[in-house]
Amino acid sequence: MEQIWQQLRLFQPDGWPLDIVSAGFVQQVNLEDGLLTISLLWPLASNDWQQQLQAEIEPRLLALPKVQRIGWQVRQEIAALARATAVPGIPGIRNVIAVASAKGGVGKSTVAVNLALALSRQGARVGLLDADIYGPSIPTMLGLQTARPESPDGKHMRPVPASGLATLSIGYLVPAEESVVWRGPMASKALGQLLHETLWGDLDYLIVDMPPGTGDIQLTMAQQIPTTAVVMVTTPQDVALIDVRKGISMLEKVNIPVLGIVENMSVHVCSQCGHEEPLFGCGGGAALADEFNIPLLASLPLHINVRRSMDEGQPVVASAPLSDLASGYHRLARQVAVRLYFSGKTIPATIFTAPA
């Protein structure tokens, strides 16, 4: 039996601080009449990890004496992790991941939408909140410009379903041709209503697409959201890095952890020949990650199909989940799920009970 445990301990993918056994994910191992039964409990979004585990470990296990076949008993119960602020949690939501940039035009919303979809494809229950009160883009990116949330009681809203996500945006409530001219306190109040007066149901992750900037509105929003961690999005160019650096510093001052950096538009990929060209420079995201001693979670390309899919309301992870472009977001989702779990402290899941 020790040989079996030794083989299981070999599964420690890049970015993992522990192997699968030391992390406590393997609940039980039993070998009887040639059948090896392995019971696993995944506390994070794990569909791809489970497939990788079986592909890498099964051949080694089947080569051991007396092991003739393998049965996997797998459960996924995503852990609720400690919040960064003292803001009360949202009923039913275990973890809140804010996607921020402090700089407009870096593709933050594109990353937020596809990250949410990728986490959902990993087996998680995921919501997506568009917190950009002045410039909501999520309805367009999901092809839901005319969608309107329902209210069962005149006080609460139900999120709008989209490709397996529970979504909400001020763009569902305000006509697209109308601008929102609220001052900061009104915008912050509106965000609070979207957060706390929505019947989200049971969610493992709520992805919050934050507005760009580092001013009073962004600071107030960051402090009133019960955030677990933040993913920062940048492009490699210095103009973006200047603002993103300010955004990270702002979050540090209010003790909200940055999970890592996403370098978006790292290279331009020609749709005709596949040639890659770093239009916005090289290595900016990696240098920023090194400066703040946080991981570079992903480098994502600039490609016309990504732009086209978002404009058409068909995000690439939903419309072409097996494509090379989607694979970058799947890798990002895996890194976010793993690093969030291992960097956070679990708290009792019993307090995360959604209203009926």
Rank of each mutant, 00 (worst) to 15 (best):
F352Y: 03
V316E: 01
P321R: 11
I351M: 03
S319C: 04
P348I: 10
S327Q: 09
P321M: 13
P348H: 00
A349E: 04
F342P: 02
A318N: 09
D324G: 11
V316C: 03
T350A: 08
S343G: 14
Q314V: 11
R331Q: 15
A318V: 06
A333T: 09
F342W: 04
V338G: 06
P348Q: 00
V316T: 08
A318C: 10
T350P: 00
Y329S: 13
T350M: 01
Q314G: 05
G344I: 05
R331P: 04
V316P: 00
T353P: 07
D324F: 13
R331M: 14
S343Y: 02
A318R: 13
E312T: 05
H330A: 15
L332R: 02
F352W: 00
D324H: 15
K345W: 00
V336L: 05
E312V: 05
S327V: 01
F342H: 14
A333V: 12
S323M: 08
V317D: 03
D311P: 01
A333F: 13
Q314E: 13
D324L: 14
L332P: 10
S319M: 01
V338A: 15
A333L: 15
S327F: 08
A318M: 07
I347Q: 01
I347F: 09
Q314I: 07
Y329Q: 13
Y329K: 14
V317S: 11
D311M: 04
F352H: 02
A326L: 08
P315N: 10
G313A: 06
L325V: 12
H330G: 11
P348F: 00
R339W: 02
Q335E: 08
F342K: 03
L340F: 04
G344H: 02
T353F: 06
I347K: 02
P321L: 13
L322Q: 15
